[in-house]
Design a binder for these strands. Structure first.
Length: 575
RNA sequence: GGUGGGGUAGCUCAGCUGGUUAGAGCGCGGGAUUCAUAACCCCGAGGUCGGGAGUUCAAUUCUCCCCCCCACCA
């Protein structure tokens, strides 16, 4: 089918290496990005879906220390855990990389050097708290002390939780290390590189002004930062785990014990991961990222949680644009709010909420995928409850879709010998179904194109319902008693609906969709996204074509399951 | 504290630039059906659209104030 092929570069915010993510993290970036990637592939577009673990920074170091491991070993283990959890959810990354891998080191260093050549980097000496016992400089939030403003004794280095004053760690009285508790700390001079963001302020604003199709949430956050005024930001830290600072490709004098701050190198890994992908497949990464190397026709779509919007709309663009090089900038952006656990926070320590690896122990990924996207936190935070999860999955997947597939395939198996029947002509009922299907398919397609997950799921569900309505009217089980041709039309239409419904379900529930399409014997090349004007879809299965009724697609979630899970994961209201 | 996002039927949520009897799914009540995972289909009952004031012929939809919830604050 000749179509206008487009190219989509899709990234989802990088999950931090520190432990397996919970369902909220999944629902807010990786999963919707996957749904979108699958949809665009089905449309016949060329898609590159990239993700990676974000591995640098103090939290990784501390988590490793707590686990009694060196950071590298810790990250190696955690990377595998996260990669496997993502695979378990059928996230169809073209590559899942690591920000600690060599390509990101090279790129990050190159970006910094390019920025410096353009006068956007400045070396400054500042005073920071050094912990003698910990043998390290302390990040702001790992310094505690008495607030110089209100006298609160447990003020953090960056802010006092009591009076709200923004603080500088060196101003705290009686400072101590939050890591070891040691009070043997002192302010020491240390040099850092600063990114002169204010110099880019006007260019960033002009760029945001043109981004009229960004969602409201993204634009308002970007403007908020711009209105407040960008500030010079340190992009290096006194740590050992991270990307070394260079000058002219060699270690930068005076920066031997320093690395880039994690927020500077993490987004660069979008590119780094693409390079990893290219190195492992022999593909060309520059045609996805360099405007001068063929990327000008790429549509770049980013998925992220609302906490990441500022970095993607302002900070990272400063790096990209400031380099003066023709890198690809984000075109479309989708931001999500949070999924909450019964209205409160997910928490490992308090045993509240389900994490990705645990979810897969309970049920196949499709169950979670469907619920999380049908209830995606698009306009506001969305509460996850096991009770609603049970209801949604049982109703939508088991009763509406699963049962539709089951009822018509089993009827066809017993009365028409497990083959697509010939004979009869479509009538009024078939016309009505085709009309409704075409209308809803149009809407569904638009929802996917706009990345409206909830609406897309609702529309898909409505299409499934239309199938059940049709069967109710066509009632082949009645017709077969008097008019075999009429029953044949009903069964044939129903079986084609099974295939169509599964094709449209692929982005959301890929495994179940595949099981249905395999059972119906639909060849891969016929599983592409249909168009509303294609009327041939209702006679796509060859007449006489044999199929195997699939097994029950979705087992219902029992009340006893919910009770057990509530016990284990802390349901109801614990907050 | 600042900024942003929310407060709409029992529950989870839709409701562009203001305008006939405010919508969906689930849950609930009734009916129909028997091909099917006690499933499906139809009908119905449920809401002073957080509170107050204002603008307007007209506000859930605009403005202001207040009260709650959530997130972020480099």
């Amino acid at each position: 089918m000749p179509e206008i092929m487009a190219r989509y570069l899709i990234t989802s915010a990088l999950p931090y290496i520190n432990g397996v993510k919970h369902l909220g993290n999944l629902a807010g970036s990786m999963l919707p990005a996957d749904v979108h990637a699958r949809f665009r592939r089905l449309q016949g577009h060329e898609v590159l879906y990239i993700c990676a673990t974000d591995e640098h920074g103090t939290p990784a170091e501390l988590a490793a220390a707590e686990a009694g491991q060196d950071v590298r070993t810790y990250c190696n283990e955690q990377f595998v855990i996260q990669r496997d959890a993502c695979a378990g959810f059928k996230l169809s990354f073209d590559h899942f990389g690591r920000s600690s891998n060599p390509p990101n080191h090279r790129l990050t260093q190159a970006f910094c050097e390019a920025l410096e050549k353009n006068g956007l980097i400045e070396e400054r000496v500042t005073k920071q708290i050094y912990s003698v016992d910990d043998k390290r400089f302390l990040p702001d939030r790992y310094v505690e002390g008495t607030c110089p403003v209100c006298g609160f004794e447990r003020a953090r280095g960056d802010q006092c939780d009591n009076c709200g004053s923004l603080l500088d760690p060196v101003d705290l009285k009686n400072p101590r290390s939050k890591i070891s508790g040691s009070t043997n700390v002192e302010a020491r001079d240390t040099a850092h590189l600063f990114l002169l963001q204010p110099k880019m302020q006007d260019r960033i604003r002009a760029w945001v002004d043109k981004a009229t199709d960004w969602p409201q949430l993204a634009r308002s956050i970007a403007y908020k930062w711009l209105d407040e005024g960008l500030i010079d930001r340190a992009i290096t830290r006194d740590l050992s785990w991270g990307i070394k600072v260079t000058k002219d490709g060699k270690p930068r004098p005076g920066f031997e014990g320093k690395v880039f701050y994690v927020w500077f190198d993490a987004p660069v890994e979008y590119i780094g991961s693409t390079v990893e992908w290219a190195e492992s497949t022999g593909a060309d990464w520059e045609r996805w990222w360099r405007e001068d190397k063929g990327a000008s026709d790429v549509t770049y779509v980013q998925f992220m949680g609302k906490d990441n919007v500022a970095f993607h709309t302002v900070s990272f663009p400063v790096t990209i644009m400031g380099s003066g090089e023709p890198w690809k900038l984000v075109d479309r952006l989708k931001a999500f709010n949070w999924v909450t656990w019964y209205g409160g926070k997910f928490s490992t320590s308090e045993k509240r909420g389900i994490f990705m690896d645990q979810a897969l122990e309970l049920l196949p990924s499709d169950y979670w995928r469907w619920y999380l996207m049908a209830n995606a936190p698009e306009s506001s935070d969305a509460a996850f409850t096991l009770e609603q999860f049970q209801q949604t999955v049982n109703a939508d997947l088991a009763n509406v879709f699963g049962n539709f597939v089951n009822r018509i395939t089993r009827f066809a198996a017993s009365k028409f010998d497990s083959a697509v029947p010939d004979g009869g002509e479509p009538g009024e009922a078939e016309e009505k179904l085709a009309k409704e299907f075409a209308d809803r398919l149009k809407t569904l397609t638009q929802c996917h194109e706009q990345m409206e997950m909830r609406k897309a799921a609702a529309e898909l569900r409505a299409i499934w319902v239309a199938g059940n309505e049709y069967l109710q009217v066509a009632a082949p089980w009645t017709a077969i008693k008097t008019d075999r041709d009429k029953a044949a039309v009903g069964v044939r239409t129903g079986l084609n609906a099974v295939a169509l419904f599964a094709i449209l379900a692929q982005p959301f529930i890929p495994d179940a969709a595949k099981a249905v399409l395999d059972a119906m014997g639909v060849p891969d090349e016929n599983r592409t996204w249909p168009k509303p004007e294609d009327v041939g879809v209702w006679d796509a299965l060859p007449r006489g074509h044999a199929f195997t009724p699939p097994d029950v697609l979705f087992k219902k979630i029992e009340d006893a399951d919910v009770a057990a899970w509530t016990e284990r994961f802390g349901g109801v209201d614990g907050a």
